[in-house]
Design a protein around this nucleic acid. Sequence first.
DNA 1: AATAGTAGTAAACAATAGGTTAGCGGTAAC
DNA 2: GTTACCGCTAACCTATTGTTTACTACTATT
Lengths: 123, 123
Amino acid sequence: MKRPKEIKPAFTEARCAQHLSATEDAIYVIGGKWTLRIVIAVMSGHHRFNDLQRTINGISARVLSSELKDLELNGLVERVVLVDQKPVVTEYLPTDYTRTLREVISALAIWGEKHKKKITNRE
Amino acid sequence: MKRPKEIKPAFTEARCAQHLSATEDAIYVIGGKWTLRIVIAVMSGHHRFNDLQRTINGISARVLSSELKDLELNGLVERVVLVDQKPVVTEYLPTDYTRTLREVISALAIWGEKHKKKITNRE
DNA sequence: AATAGTAGTAAACAATAGGTTAGCGGTAAC
DNA sequence: GTTACCGCTAACCTATTGTTTACTACTATT
């Protein structure tokens, strides 16, 4: 017997538990303040340290450095040092795994735009 | 003249800036450790304080309380006190705006599952 | 009368994230 | 020679976040 005249949930009980666990894992990896922004910048062609720092507004070298190390550990960027270049150049490149985040980023970006409109309209 | 033989970016430069700004806004609102998990639980039919605390593994009353206040301010839950009930009952209900997060949650949940499989397989 | 649940709040504290400043070794341009 | 860019790193500090414990006021059950 199911609750007779109540709001029907947007997610079933099973989906709830599943979603709770899965989003917990996802947020653990990509939920940081900077993580996805770095990923977006790398996917957009910004591969160098200082280029990334310039592109991502407000990030400090210290934080960028430690975030890049985490991302590398998780396989979300690949760090490549080009030794044969005149000044040795370090590049952070997207991987196949990075590209699996495209739908997540798109969904977030779409929602973020809607939310911005909502906020700016009401004030 | 565009870079001749390089990896072509997954996002264009314009999309990059757009995505950076929009996801920044989105993460500001829903990027917290608990935010989306509470939203999922509320959308799944868990409407009461203690029910939420039981459902969301590891959250303390203090944090749940303050997160619910934030969510209410952002219009992502509605706090309803049922005064006519024998013991006064407080409910946290999803709103229309909450439901705009469905795609975001789905995308995150799908990615989180994939990521979990990836991690458990390699160890 | 005692216990337990409901919906929290207060206080005190610990942990983590993030920011600021400074600097290093190298190259290259002025 | 001095300045500046590159890719960082160390030390230090602050702010946010989260934890624990205890407690409130009320109701219902045993």
